[in-house]
């Protein structure tokens, strides 16, 4: 385990966060980009909003300042696309539960595995960090 310099340069800090394979760190830039996606998802914590959303997903989303691209990703439940658009998993989880989808099963849809395969990988000890730590470093 290495020691952080007490005052790391912010640009270096942010660049490092983009160097992790298959990962979208929820940076301020993503939080800004996905603000209304996340606030929309948050609204699904209220039962009456869940009902209205289920009745007509498109009409409910049209009440929010969300891009067409994001609306299409939400309709398709394309969670990797939503991460790229600034969605955060704890907010998107409100959509998992609206769909009645267990958290781990919803997470598995972001990987290249089926849910049974993903579940088995977890039982077998999870995904190894080996080769998954750094894009540039390849380790």
């Amino acid at each position: 385990m290495t020691n952080a310099s007490p005052r790391q340069n912010i640009h270096e800090y942010l660049a490092e966060l983009e160097d992790i394979p298959g990962t979208r760190v929820f940076t301020a830039a993503r939080a800004r980009k996905g603000y209304w996606i996340n606030q929309f998802a948050m609204s699904l914590m209220k039962a009456e909003n869940r009902e209205r959303f289920k009745e007509d997903e498109r009409a409910y989303m049209d009440e929010w300042a969300i891009s067409e691209e994001a609306k299409a990703a939400l309709l398709a439940r394309d969670y990797n696309a939503l991460l790229d658009l600034g969605g955060n998993v704890y907010f998107l989880a409100k959509l998992f539960s609206t769909d009645g989808l267990p958290f781990a099963e919803a997470v598995s849809t972001m990987t290249d595995m089926s849910w049974p395969e993903y579940r088995q990988m977890m039982l077998d000890g999870g995904r190894s960090p080996e080769g998954n730590r750094s894009i540039k470093g390849g380790y």
Binding site: M1, I20, P21, G22, T23, R24, Y79, N80, L83, V89, F103, V107, S108, M110, T111, D112, Y118, M121, M122, G125, G126, R127, S128, P129, N132
Partner: peptide, 23 residues
């Protein structure tokens, strides 16, 4: 250790976690 998002989801690291507990 856990990752709940993206294609790398499901990452666990027994060795690192135990080193953290040691520390």
């Amino acid at each position: 250790s856990h990752q709940l998002q993206g294609p790398r989801a499901g990452l666990l690291n027994r060795e690192w976690d135990n080193r953290f507990l040691d520390l």
